Computed example of a mutant assay.
Amino acid sequence: MPASEFDSKSKKVVRSLYHGKNSCATISAEVGLSIPSVQKIINALLQKGWISESGVGISSGGRKPATYVLNANRLYILCVAMDQFTTRVGLTDLQNNFVTPVHEFELKLHNNVNATQDLVNGIALYLKLANIDSHKIIAAGIAMPGFVNEADGINYSYLPVDDGHNLKEYLSEKLKMPVFIFNDSNAVAQAELKFGLGAAFQEMMVINIGWGIGLGMIINGKMYNGYSGFAGEFSHIPLVKNGQLCTCGKHGCLETVASLIAVEERAIKEMREGLYTTSLTALGRKITAQDILEEAGKGDRFCIKLIAEAGYHIGEGLAILLHIMNPQVIVLSGKGAAVGKLWLAPIQQAINEHSIPRLASFTEIAISELGNNAELIGAASFVMENIHSITITE
């Protein structure tokens, strides 16, 4: 479709269809355009091969409406999911399918002055191996930890840039495509909102259990970022008086007792002091958080105990948020959610002990069904949320 035809109204229709097949009437209600206007756009998109008919929808009476779906391979989205130690890169089509295997590489963020260039190099290598026509990639969505100002394209915690650009501009210049950056926990929540439990719940707290304890908040069916964009720093609630210094520079944060880093450090310390556990000791090397998650899933009592202790502290923090937010559901996601059921009992116990029963009884705790790709899916979804600012040409 020529750029002159692909106007803002057409982009709204494409954004609506990205999140699933829809009828003309449903798209009209979602994007705020009249049904005749939407039908005209749909006809143009059909003619140019951007969308196809996909059966019929449900009717409350009379003829069932036709539904439409985006043609998957028309464009691709580069999605990147970062944590403090590793970065994962994938490429999705317009039906949210991964078109190449997800590539993972090590990239330490803390005190790494070369982290930004390392990120560019890792993405460039992935694109070379993927062998995809770069002109078909609409943009890159990069989810990352830290204090991320999504609007201004700045990460105040990691990925330094020295040449006068902000991070978003720098990455866009190096990768030669539009780039959008997002907080990792917001990306996980976005995935849940658009492709997970968002269809069933309008008020959600999505907990990103990883090297930190992130939080994405969904209020009235929309992402909530706060006034300056930094809402959801759940990791840094001052929860315990352990005197332990947190990465944020404060003491006693939730992160110091409940993050996967804290769980890993606790295991190493206890084993150094003489604790013997068959599964972990048999590894014969330094223990990692991934080892603990895997062995906990296999029933190792020590690993389960570590998860339970961290889970209880998370529950204590959630009890505070319950009294403020009163969500319909708390969704557990992120790297740690691989052993999701093991978190449920200790989290629920803490909530029961520290929350007003009337509040706690109306909040469900669920495990995300999106798995380890939630952050990547959320990053891709955020790109489509910003499609209005992307020039689309053929």
Rank of each mutant, 00 (worst) to 15 (best):
F230E: 03
S172I: 08
L344N: 03
V206H: 02
N155V: 00
N352E: 14
G61C: 13
L322G: 06
M205E: 10
V339G: 06
N220E: 09
W50M: 12
G55Y: 15
I307T: 01
N326I: 15
G371R: 06
I138H: 05
I314Q: 09
A282H: 08
K250E: 07
K341N: 08
E294L: 09
Y126H: 13
Q348M: 08
A3R: 10
P2W: 10
F147V: 12
I142S: 03
V331M: 10
Q47H: 13
L293N: 01
V13W: 00
A258Y: 07
T256I: 07
S28W: 05
M82E: 05
V69M: 11
I390D: 03
A345L: 12
V80H: 12
L107H: 06
N111Q: 14
T86E: 12
L293P: 00
Q244M: 08
H19C: 10
L359V: 15
K286W: 09
G229F: 01
A29S: 11
R285A: 13
N352D: 15
G371D: 05
K341G: 04
V13L: 07
S23H: 01
G317A: 14
L344Q: 06
I27A: 08
V331P: 01
I261W: 13
A3G: 08
I51E: 04
A199T: 13
R63W: 07
N112P: 06
G317Q: 09
K250Y: 08
I58Q: 15
S235K: 00
V329F: 10
S54G: 09
K269H: 05
A25Y: 10
I27L: 10
L46T: 00
K136R: 13
I304Q: 15
I268R: 13
H110F: 15
L215E: 02
G198A: 11
F230R: 06
L70D: 02
L344H: 07
G20D: 03
M271C: 07
S157I: 09
E294P: 02
Y224P: 01
E316S: 13
H165N: 13
